[in-house]
């Protein structure tokens, strides 16, 4: 095995562990930000969820790059007012999808037919190409920022409860809540499995050994998943669960919540109207 390959084989456990840790950190960040006293943290979750949807749809429909850019600026402002640091926003939202999209859309600048802007060795940059790239990146960036600002300023439990306002069936809300809750238990289990593998390893393993390790980890995780689900079901039954789920009501919306909702609706209508 060449040294480069060996290094990569050894790295797969570390990389999986890194992904797992990253996820846990991601959630910790979100929970920390949700506890800060910023502008959005105190708003009712229902307003935020509806605002997000309305603005995202408006941005998707709009054909006007300037309008999308303004919405992006608005999202950034809201983030700042809610005490989200730019660095946090970058790590949580932009790194990943935005960078990936930039890479995907770059060839389109030279591949889209249209009016020539600049002739290069390997192709011609067209106006249409630039516009296409602009639309895509602007939309991706704006929507991701809006979504992050919502998710970072609201605890997951509240977001789920707010989905009820959008007429999502209760059973889905309950399943989503439980899934989120147990992701952490399984992440911990997966982490432990890979940690113990790493500490028991003596020397480099072959690719197929590593593959089997990953697959066996998946198998063990699946067993644990099913065992847990059985026990949880018993625990639910023990406290009266018989198939129907019920949730507590939310506290009523206050004045500032209604105002925010009206404001957002106005912005969305404005976006769509200007864009026509």
């Amino acid at each position: 095995m060449s040294p480069g390959l060996e290094h990569r084989q050894r790295g797969f456990v570390e990389r999986t562990l890194a992904s797992l840790l990253e996820t846990m950190e991601h959630t910790l960040l979100a929970e920390r930000v949700a506890e800060r006293t910023g502008m959005l943290q105190v708003r009712d979750a229902r307003v935020k969820v509806i605002a997000l949807l309305v603005l995202v749809i408006a941005v998707s429909v709009s054909h006007d790059l300037r309008v999308i850019a303004v919405t992006f600026a608005l999202a950034l402002t809201l983030g700042w007012a809610s005490k989200i640091r730019l660095v946090e926003l970058m790590k949580h939202a932009w790194w990943g999808t935005l960078v990936f999209s930039a890479a995907i859309v770059a060839p389109a600048i030279v591949m889209t037919p249209g009016r020539t802007i600049l002739r290069l060795q390997f192709g011609t940059i067209t106006e249409q190409g630039l516009r296409a790239a602009g639309y895509l990146l602007a939309r991706v960036g704006t929507v991701i920022t809006l979504c992050s600002v919502l998710v970072l300023t609201t605890s997951w439990a509240r977001i789920l409860r707010a989905l009820r306002a959008l007429r999502v069936p209760v059973v889905f809300v309950v399943i989503l809540g439980m899934t989120y809750r147990y992701i952490f238990v399984l992440l911990q289990t997966a982490h432990d499995i890979f940690e113990s593998r790493r500490s028991r390893r003596v020397g480099p393993s072959s690719a197929s050994q590593n593959r089997w390790a990953a697959v066996a980890a998946a198998g063990v995780l699946m067993s644990k998943t099913l065992e847990l689900s059985g026990e949880i079901y018993l625990a639910m039954q023990s406290r009266g669960f018989r198939g129907e789920v019920y949730l507590l009501d939310d506290p009523p919306m206050r004045g500032p919540d209604w105002l925010t909702l009206a404001g957002v609706a106005g912005v969305a209508v404005g976006i769509v109207w200007i864009s026509q």
């Binding site: 999986t16 059973v171 899934t179 147990y182 399984l186 590593n210 689900s229 669960f241 789920v245």
Partner: peptide, 20 residues
């Protein structure tokens, strides 16, 4: 309810596995 929730969580975690 618990079965699907747990399985969704499992699916989520699996999507993070780096497979050689």
């Amino acid at each position: 309810v618990p079965l699907l929730s747990l399985f969704a969580a499992f699916s989520f975690v699996i999507m993070m596995f780096n497979l050689p």
